[in-house]
Design a protein around this nucleic acid. Structure first.
Length: 574
RNA sequence: GCGAGCGUAGUGUAGCGGUUAUCACCGAGCGUUGCCAACGCUUGAACCCGGAUUCAAAUUCCGGCGCUCGCACCA
């Protein structure tokens, strides 16, 4: 019986020993929260990223973009990250406990998030706020703790403040105009980005679960909130999802439920959110996650960002317990709206054509600038505005006009020109809503390694196997000469060269040490197929194929091997 | 950030004032072997970093860095 802790250590040793994933910069002492993907892990990461890309790009209305990681501060100020990631911490002088300062002063201030350090300290002192831990009221000066890595753009003095992006999402929001143009302005559409994100964590823990630089993959899906968002869920008929709904919705506990049932009962509040939950589930199953170890947990109302209307975490069960690996959030129009407000850009909106165009045919009193100007001087602008907002035209002159500054002026006949305005309003500009599935790839990779990790025994010896699916296995196949003599090594080398010509197939050669040992090494990095070249190969060209998961071997010709490998149908031969 | 424990070959470890730093797996080479970590021979590889105490430090002390756990923070 191994404990979870032993299992984690055993897996981490394996990952390091076999060049998968290991702490970075270790010969310089190491840096917490930074990891290398090695010669084997690099392939794993790339394949997971590629599976993820294909999963979404194959929907047809989703494109991939790639944005800079260095981001000027104004972008992150608009998105809310600078205030959200610039919290202050206060330390209790009596017991050394640390708390977020804004949380401590919550009941004494409306918007503590906006306060400066000295303001926070003043509130702590004047209100004698007690330490939640030891009840004393003896606070050290608060310190800012910025979770973003800062940098400056420009090599000389001065320059512009910038940060390493804490998420990739801003790239999709800021390139929205180009994405919209690409799709000929037709919602819904989405954009994905795979790349690094950075958070200067106070104390990274739990191996590669919380890192300072990490691989993210995010999708922003833009929809018209007034268009019917229903999806076809028949694909998931019969699949039960593990759901933990927000207790505020009435449902208390974890339940198993079909995706459309959850939607019909309004547990999932939006069809597009439900759709992406189900698609995300499919993606994880495709790369080998265990469906029993996946659940969705709905954010409680007070946990949710204020602009979000529904938010679900996908959690995966592994040696660290249930860990959030994907967040699927309905973000409303918050992000596009925030950038619009910060920049006054008119490009972040979508056009919605009305079913029936609105015909306008009315008479208006247009201001005659040449008269209004000299007559009202500073107030001329207000007068012009008030005239344009006039709904009922005056029946006679002069008439009184109320201005927005509270004063009333008298309008003479020569000050206005009665005009007939005819126009057709065919639609309106609006801020699209966004559904955002955000994936932490390193966490997902950890969990598929964890789910696939088998510690077993073979003839009394510990035997380790990584059961990775072919879609993400770092190498699809290894070629092994039974012995490196009698021409078997030349044939094996030739087979490796031939198989490497196949698209997307990773092949390595191993001729070192006994055949059993080489099978064992391949099992440890999750190679699903081992090709062995033996004496029969020299005679008739056939090779044996060993399946990792049950170690069964069959013999086929080299041509068939190439065919089946390329088509991914080797399993059908068994 | 605080507190506790820990840091020895690629991995897992023994040693806890004086050893040529233990053992196993591991890796490389050669030989043998007709398919699942075989065997034999040869060989490779470590005391986290810096300072102090001492005739002598992997071992004791101090500082740093890192790891694990708890608290806090974070998702």
């Amino acid at each position: 019986m191994t404990t979870e802790g032993e299992r984690v250590n055993s897996l981490m040793s394996l990952l390091k020993r076999r060049g998968m994933i290991f702490p970075a910069f270790s010969i310089h002492g190491g840096v917490a929260g930074l990891f290398d993907y090695g010669p084997v892990g690099g392939r794993l990461l790339r394949k997971v990223q590629q599976e993820w890309r294909e999963h979404w790009l194959s929907k047809g209305n989703i494109v991939e973009i790639d944005s800079p990681t260095i981001t000027p501060d104004s972008v992150l100020a608009a998105s809310g990250h600078i205030s959200a990631f610039n919290d202050h911490a206060s330390e209790c002088n009596a017991c050394n406990a640390i708390f977020r300062s804004d949380h401590l002063v919550e009941e004494f201030h409306q918007n503590p998030d906006s306060l400066s350090g000295p303001d926070l300290d003043a509130i702590l002192t004047t209100n004698n706020v007690a330490c939640p831990s030891c009840k004393e009221s003896d606070w050290l000066a608060s310190r800012p703790m910025n979770l973003m890595f800062g940098t400056r753009i420009g090599a000389t003095r001065g320059g512009r403040q910038a940060y390493m992006r804490p998420e990739t999402a801003q790239g999709m929001f800021l390139t929205y105009p180009m994405i919209q143009r690409h799709f000929r302005n037709r919602l819904p559409f989405g954009a994905i980005q795979v790349g690094k994100g950075y958070r200067n964590e106070i104390s990274p823990r739990q191996g590669m679960i919380r890192q300072r630089e990490f691989n993210m993959a995010e999708l922003e899906y833009f929809i018209d909130p007034e268009t019917d968002a229903s999806h076809d869920f028949t694909k998931w008929d019969g699949i039960e999802f593990n759901l933990i709904p927000d207790p505020a919705g009435g449902q208390q506990n974890e339940t198993k439920m079909g995706i459309s049932a959850a939607l019909n009962e309004n547990i999932i509040r939006h069809p597009t959110v439900a759709f992406f939950m189900a698609e995300t589930f499919d993606f994880l199953i495709n790369i080998g996650a265990n469906p029993e170890k996946i659940r969705f947990r709905q954010h409680e109302s007070d946990e949710m960002a204020h602009y979000a209307t529904d938010c679900w975490d996908l959690e995966m069960l592994g040696s660290y317990g249930w860990i959030e690996c994907v967040g699927i959030a309905h973000r409303g129009c918050y992000d596009l709206g925030a950038h619009e407000e910060a920049t006054n850009s008119k490009e972040l909106r979508a056009w919605r054509e009305f079913a029936e165009p609105i015909e306008i045919d009315k008479e208006v009193a247009a201001a005659v600038g040449a008269v209004i100007g000299p007559a009202f001087r500073q107030q001329a602008g207000l007068v012009t505005q008030a005239l344009s907002e006039l709904n009922d035209l005056p029946s006679a002159f002069p008439f009184d006009l109320n201005l927005s500054d509270g004063t009333t002026v008298s309008i003479e006949e020569n000050m206005v020109e009665i005009k007939r305005v005819q126009e057709t309003i065919r639609g309106e500009w609006f801020l699209p809503h966004v559904v955002e599935p955000a994936f932490g790839l390193d966490r997902i990779i950890w969990h598929i390694l964890d789910h696939g990790y088998e510690m077993t025994e073979k003839e009394g010896e510990e035997y380790l196997i990584l059961h990775l699916t072919e879609s993400v296995a770092p190498y699809e196949v290894v070629v092994l000469p039974l012995f490196e003599k009698d021409g078997m090594d030349e044939v094996a080398n030739q087979i490796q060269r031939d198989l490497l010509k196949l698209n997307g197939i990773g092949v390595y050669y191993d001729g070192s040490k006994s055949i059993g040992r080489r099978y064992a090494r391949a099992d440890e990095i999750g190679v699903p197929w081992a090709i062995t070249v033996d004496h029969t190969t020299i005679e008739d060209g056939t090779v044996t194929i060993r399946r990792r998961d049950d170690q069964l071997q069959i013999r086929i010709s080299q041509d068939d091997l190439a065919q089946h490998l390329q088509n991914g149908t080797l399993g059908s031969l068994y």
